[in-house]
Design a protein around this nucleic acid. Structure first.
Length: 266
DNA sequence: TATAGTGTTATCGG
DNA sequence: ACCGATAACACTAT
């Protein structure tokens, strides 16, 4: 599930409901999710502090901590979401992976937990365990965030070698935040074939792609997630292009399942 | 039972 | 060293 829009809503949940609460204890016992930290390392680094701010770049988010503590980075991976449970039994569920299957109060898949001194807790709930929690992430390795990238910066993303344009859009060190579904939506909006080599992209197409990056990301954030995007809603067997009704076709591009309209993405 | 999956990264060959 | 392709990672639902 999580691409930039989902991570942004998770960040906003943390900002709204977790900042300023004292961390009394930490469950960092999942040593795969918390790699390369050893069990107990995150607990000793965080216990007694508060989260003071929540940031995001691309699909990475991190929190500043009080008293000049380390930054706490949470990456949602393929199936992660943030759940905050308060002492009264209320709960804020910040995600939509397998929406409706997980019941409130079911914390089987909590892979990392901050226990607050007021009895509440903030969890990374992640069935597949491909999410990751770490201190002081190397954020500078990420490219410009897809919500704020400039036209000049985007021209650098779409220049150079022969990789398929879709693969390039998903390279987080060039532009941060675009995943498999957003990439399909951007290419569909811009009417560009996903497999088209980067070095054949024309300036006109670059302009369309740049505008599509912003309109797709903005629409997904406003709609509440990548699932609300037009092409995403139709990328299944029998799905049709919302623009011209042609049957969408499926293939592999950049190692990922890809759907596109054969009529106007060539 | 076999397979696919909204992400990242190590590894291999060119 | 760079680029591109692929497999692996861990786990669940279909």
């Amino acid at each position: 599930m999580p691409e930039l829009p989902e991570v942004e809503s998770a960040r906003s949940v943390i900002e709204r409901a977790a900042l300023g609460r004292v961390i009394a204890d930490v469950d960092d016992s999942d040593s795969y999710v918390c790699r390369p930290h050893r069990p107990g390392e995150l607990r000793s680094a965080l216990a007694g502090r508060k989260l003071t701010a929540a940031h995001r770049r691309g699909k990475s988010m991190w929190c500043d901590t009080s008293e000049d503590g380390p930054a706490l980075c949470i990456h949602l991976g393929m199936s992660g979401k943030i759940v905050i449970a308060d002492p009264g039994g209320g709960e804020i569920d910040g995600g939509d992976y397998w929406e409706g299957r997980r019941r409130p109060g079911d914390y089987r898949w909590a892979r990392f937990t901050l226990l607050f001194s007021d009895g509440g807790r903030m969890m990374l709930v992640d069935p597949r365990r491909l999410g990751r929690v770490r201190l002081d992430p190397p954020v500078e390795l990420l490219g410009p965030d897809a919500t704020t990238i400039t036209a000049a910066q985007f021209r650098a993303v779409v220049s150079g070698r022969s990789a398929p344009v879709k693969a390039r859009l998903m390279e987080q060190h060039r532009i941060a935040g675009i995943g498999n579904l957003l990439a399909d939506e951007i290419l569909w909006q811009a009417k560009v074939n996903p497999a088209r080599p980067i070095d054949e992209i024309t300036p006109r197409e670059t302009g369309r792609l740049f505008r599509a990056v912003h309109s797709a990301v903005d629409a997904a954030i406003a709609g509440g997630g990548v699932h609300t995007l037009p092409i995403v809603a139709h990328r299944h067997a029998g799905g049709r292009c919302p623009r011209d009704g042609a049957g969408l076709v499926q293939g592999q591009v950049g190692g990922r399942t890809t759907w596109w309209c054969p009529k106007d993405q060539d």
